[in-house]
Design a protein around this nucleic acid. Structure first.
Ligand SMILES: Nc1nc2c(ncn2[C@H]2C[C@H](O)[C@@H](COP(=O)(O)OP(=O)(O)OP(=O)(O)O)O2)c(=O)[nH]1
Ligand SMILES: [Mn+2]
Ligand SMILES: [Mn+2]
Length: 499
DNA sequence: TTTGTGTGCCAC
DNA sequence: AAACGTGGCACACAAA
């Protein structure tokens, strides 16, 4: 058995060189992450110092110092084994996280094709639009300055241009805040502000996405992200270099950017996204009869909330309205206050307070479930999800009210977000196994991206008709809840496509 | 020159 | 963001 850190990288190396893979492996970083997903890092140096009280990297120590069988790595292994068993995490480790490594390594090696020419054109369009905005901003300002500096924007607006600063929040370091909420407030007070807002949007697109993506395209014309299996405290994956889990979505610029992610010739991009996934999980965990019935009837609670808040017929709910409602639905169940709710929804403070109160009286079992979680985290110092995944939250008993409240909200979130993470991981393992049985894995069907509750595939056109229902049914049956689990399927030659 | 903090914003 | 949660990343600015 291969016992080491960063096994995903080692597997990728072996696969790239056509070597045989170890039959069994034990990733120490992932093991320690399951034991405590809030560690600062999961390196041999850090963990052996912390758990073995040993300063040096256990894997690079001179062999002369070592007793056979008691090297630092096997000490860490023994410790992790013992604790995984004690915490009942072996199942998650052995049957979910370790099998996932093989899948993630295939996904990272495969990468996703980028249309470089389209991206360059988008860059140029952005560049021209940004230059135009900069000209207009400097003209209205009567001087040049660094528009990327919140400090300089503040000085310009409130000192040089004498814009009324009434109602403008201060940052914790004392200056006026210039975030989107404050700029929206200032939009009616000076014509420069609308241009600043648009500049922010375009500069973000260019500096965070369009430029770095061009840099990171490989010789194969594809982008290879790195999934961090130890990257979150709830069980989700994270994605780095580049992060492909936060590619813009919804605006015209976002669609243009997503259109640069394309399928190989003869293939189609197909995405499968779980519907209202954490609300379904919450309904199931809490046993709330009303929410369970809503899902059994096939209702869309995000749409219902949007219709309610915006006072329109559910059929008239737009995707932007539904996204706002999504923020509100999850906000409420994870502890949002009436002030934040009113700002996000546009409702008055009183209406917001009423909405939240009615939400918890409609779905009263959710409130009861939350109270049980709060009790658990206070008494045990940790919470677990349905599969035993664990998060330590010792601050739940902090003497500082803000700290304990924050820990309680995290405690309420973890069992839900963490089960959603487990469900998609189970789905990935199950789908991969079924596709391998078909002989399609990594050939006619390529799993490209995992985005929290969504899988993006590249599928050969001639087997789409068979592959799509196979994947969808597999994802929907990956886990049994008290409510049905469904996926929404979208397809196109590029990622900016319509349904 | 590098490193760390603050601000801000993209996604789920 | 004044009581939604989970992330990654770019940039300004100050300190090392
Ligand atoms: N706490 C919190 N969680 C969020 C937020 N946005 C998304 N999530 C979590 C909960 C969602 O169920 C999960 C997947 O995000 P999606 O965008 O796919 O939304 P969801 O599946 O709920 O609805 P959908 O039917 O796919 O549009 O991520 C948010 O603003 N706050
Ligand atoms: Mn979803
Ligand atoms: Mn999603």
């Amino acid at each position: 058995m291969l016992i080491d850190f960063n096994i995903k990288e080692k597997i990728k190396e072996l696969k790239s060189n056509g070597k045989n893979l170890p039959a069994e492996y034990f990733d120490l970083g992932v093991a320690f992450w399951l034991l405590n997903p809030d560690e600062k890092e999961y390196t041999p140096e850090y963990l052996s110092k912390k758990y073995l009280h040993n300063e040096r990297n256990p894997s690079t120590r001179a062999s002369s110092e070592l007793q056979p069988n008691s090297s630092g790595l096997s000490k860490l292994h023994q410790f992790a084994q013992k604790k995984l068993k004690e915490y009942k995490l072996q199942h998650l480790f052995k049957d979910l996280e370790m099998p996932l490594i093989d899948i993630l390594s295939d996904m990272e090696l495969r990468g996703i094709r980028l249309d470089i020419e389209a991206l360059k054109k988008l860059d140029q369009r952005l560049q021209r639009a940004i230059e135009e905005l900069v000209r207009g901003i400097y003209k209205k300002a009567g001087k040049t300055f660094n528009i990327n500096s919140p400090k300089q924007i503040s000085a310009l607006l409130f000192e040089k241009l004498k814009v009324d600063s009434g109602g403008i929040r201060k940052t914790k370091s004392g200056g006026f805040s210039t975030d989107i909420e404050m700029l929206s407030l200032l939009k009616d007070r000076h014509p420069i502000v609308a241009q600043l807002i648009e500049y922010r949007e375009l500069f973000k697109m260019q500096s965070t996405y369009v430029r770095p993506l061009q840099e990171l395209v490989g010789n194969d014309g594809r982008i290879h992200t790195n999934y961090i299996q130890t990257g979150t405290a709830t069980g989700r994956l994270s994605s780095q270099h580049p992060n492909l889990q936060n590619i813009p979505n919804g605006t015209a610029w976002a669609t243009a950017l997503r259109s640069c992610f394309v399928a190989d010739r003869g293939y189609t991009l197909v995405s499968f996204d779980y519907s209202q996934i954490e609300l379904r999980i919450l309904a199931s965990l809490s046993g709330d009869p009303k929410m369970i019935e809503a899902f059994e009837r096939g209702l869309d609670i995000h749409t219902a909330t949007a219709a309610n808040i915006f006072n329109v017929d559910p059929k008239k709910v737009t995707s932007e309205m539904r996204r706002v409602a999504k923020t509100l639905n999850f906000g409420v169940v994870y502890g949002m206050g009436a002030i934040a709710f009113s700002k996000t929804s546009g409702l008055s403070f009183a209406e917001a307070k009423k909405f939240i109160a009615e939400y918890f009286s409609d779905f009263s079992k959710i409130k009861e479930w939350q109270e049980r979680i709060k009790e658990q985290v206070r008494t045990a110092g940790y919470v677990t999800n349905l599969n035993g995944r664990r998060r330590w939250l010792l601050k739940a008993v902090s003497m500082f009210r803000g700290e304990s409240a924050e820990a309680e909200r995290a405690a309420i979130n973890m069992p839900v977000q963490g089960l959603a993470a487990d469900i998609i991981k189970v789905a990935m393992v199950q789908v991969a196994a079924e596709l391998k049985r078909k002989g399609w894995w990594n050939n006619q069907v390529r799993m490209l991206l995992t985005i929290h509750d969504e899988l993006l595939f590249e599928i050969k056109d001639d087997i789409m008709k068979e592959a799509i229902p196979l994947i969808a049914r597999s994802m929907e049956s990956a886990y049994q809840l008290a409510v049905p689990i469904t996926v929404t399927i979208k397809r196109g030659k590029n990622w900016g496509r319509v349904s």
